[in-house]
Design a protein around this nucleic acid. Structure first.
Length: 271
DNA sequence: CAGAATACCTGCGGGC
DNA sequence: TGCCCGCAGGTATTCT
């Protein structure tokens, strides 16, 4: 999926278009996403108005006066806005039509995404209530991470991708952050020095912030809600650069598998 | 409890 | 051209 910067970009694109819009109808063409899409959306949502658009971790939250839609894009999800109805394609699973004719269309070939409805406070939904801090919040600090890594023997790359520790750091930005911080991805969490923890917190904030400013990373399934690509791919230092020379030192970048995910790094710059 | 493996699903590119 | 394999941006759940 889009990682956090992509989701943020999408949420920012949806904000002005959806705020105050009234839902006219809902069409669900494929119910089987990560969890079944609730059947009652088609009857519950029409007539409700979007009051707020939020992002938490990689969830997009559309809040109405009766409840909130929780949308996750999984690995291959997209949301696009159309000014009028156009015929759906193969993986266009859900449409929400608004009274101004606009259509918000959810597309997801791999169907790892989620489209859920909660009538409770969305912050307390079981999928959201245990999430760690947002990487750009001041809660995500050197002190916090030092505490979180204490006694953790797993690879630091795993730990920063763990949503209970910090949200929104996926495979691309984990690799990029560790490169920027000069840390070997396989280092055990508890083995990081205070200086490394400080560098890592800074690196994560810089990488995520820069990626948001550039509209995310262009990968094959990503486009913002208007269909525009992101530009962060031009900034990638290690992700996708296996066997190519490090920009900093020319060492040939190596790849290894950590917790089942490929991880590119520089054996010279990341000790 | 922590860590590792597994599961969900389709599409694509490379090798033959 | 077509088939098979491995791999892809995530993360909850199950196992050890």
């Amino acid at each position: 999926m889009p990682e956090l910067p992509e989701v943020e970009t999408i949420a920012r694109g949806l904000q002005p278009a959806l705020q105050h819009q009234k839902i006219q109808s809902v069409a669900i063409r494929h119910h089987q996403l990560r969890w079944p899409v609730p059947n009652n959306l088609s009857t519950e949502l029409p007539g409700l108005t979007i009051k707020a658009i939020n992002r938490r971790a990689k969830y997009i939250v559309l809040t109405t006066d009766q409840g909130s839609l929780l949308i996750h894009l999984g690995m291959s999800g997209r949301i696009q806005l159309h000014q009028a109805f156009i015929p759906p394609k193969k993986h266009d699973h859900i449409d929400i039509a608004f009274t101004n004719q606009m259509i918000m269309r959810f597309t997801d070939p791999r169907r790892f995404g989620a489209f859920l409805w909660t009538t409770a406070q969305w912050e307390f939904h079981p999928l959201l209530k245990n999430l760690g801090p947002e990487p750009l919040d001041k809660d995500f600090s050197e002190h916090y991470l030092q505490h979180a890594l204490k006694n953790r023997s797993a690879a630091i790359k795993n730990l920063i991708m763990n949503n209970n520790i910090v949200v929104g750091v996926g495979n691309i930005y984990a690799a990029e952050s560790l490169f920027l911080a000069g840390i070997n991805p396989s280092t055990r969490g508890c083995a990081l020095t205070l200086s490394q923890i400080k560098k890592l917190v800074r690196a994560i904030k810089i990488v995520i912030n820069d990626a948001i400013e550039l509209g995310g990373t262009t990968l094959k399934d990503f486009a913002d809600s208007n269909g525009n690509p992101g530009y962060f791919s031009q900034q990638l230092k290690v992700y996708g650069r296996k066997a190519l020379p490090c920009f900093q030192c020319k060492t040939i970048l190596r790849s290894m598998t950590i917790a089942g995910r490929s991880t590119v790094f520089c054996t010279t710059c990341q000790q």
